[in-house]
Design a protein around this nucleic acid. Structure first.
Lengths: 141, 141
DNA sequence: GCTTGACCTAGCTCGTACTCTAGATTTTAG
DNA sequence: CTAAAATCTAGAGTACGAGCTAGGTCAAGC
């Protein structure tokens, strides 16, 4: 793994974040990091725990649907130092709204899916499954 | 619009489902419909309300993260008629589990994002924003 | 000191799900 | 009847988010 304490190799970071080494290099090309990642004399990346922390937050942002481009914008704001916190806040608030909307949509879809499941379950248990989703049937697929 | 009652043009269906006409033709190529869509003498598609109902369910399935390939599998099951309801049920139950997991993940991410928002809000309100997300700072980006 | 495994770059490829193009045909409205 | 609007096909293009390949270089353990 790393040569000196707190110096992490790309493989270490991949393990710690669940990302692949390809993804980490891709993120670097896309400038998603908060700093240029330093290299060994031989050219290999040396990460620090703070980079891992940032990546874990990035994971949460991306898993919650934030596109890479927006993560990049956020990273740029952070990189350009103090003074733009209101902008960072606006970006996060906007994303929070998006996530809440998505949660509401997902919950609505879940209800419909669960209804379908209940319908099918009844039909399968009763052995009266015929007639599901023929047009004009009261119970759809 | 349509020539006869209950005969819907592709444009009608696009409006009713929120899908584009391109998407509807794409879905047909991908065999996502429950039946072959009939055509006019001139070759234009004629849909029925039941097709719209099905598409609305498809929208819910897809919005909740079901890939086209799985929707297709479900459509195939429905098309092949009665007798495979247990399979349809299994597919829907599996998807329900997936959606519930996704909901839990999203909720967890939302909490983290909301914490960030609160942190930034405090800092911006206090004017004490400096120091956010410098490594070893207690408050991250 | 040498093998073995991790890592390097650059760029191509992939899967998903549309979306659009182009040019021809059909339908509808006036 | 005519002109405008909608639709048709086949196939190319787009966007995202990686993943993989080729052809090497570097480093750690024995």
């Amino acid at each position: 793994m790393s040569r000196n304490a707190d110096g992490l190799s790309i493989g270490d970071v991949a393990k710690a974040t669940g990302l692949g080494v390809h993804a980490l290099r891709f993120f670097e090309r896309e400038e998603l990091f908060l700093r240029p990642i330093p290299r060994t004399a031989g050219g290999q990346r040396v990460y620090e725990p703070a980079d891992v922390e940032w990546l874990l937050l990035c994971n949460r942002l991306r898993e919650s649907g934030m596109p890479i481009a927006t993560v990049k914008r956020f990273a740029q704001l952070v990189r350009s130092g103090p003074g733009n916190e209101a902008e960072r806040l606006a970006l996060l608030e906007e994303h929070e709204r998006t996530v809440r909307d998505r949660l509401a949509d997902l919950t609505a879809s879940l209800e419909i899916i669960h209804d379908k499941v209940l319908t099918y379950r009844r039909h399968v248990e009763d052995g009266t499954a015929a007639g599901l989703w023929s047009p004009a049937s009261s119970s759809q697929p």
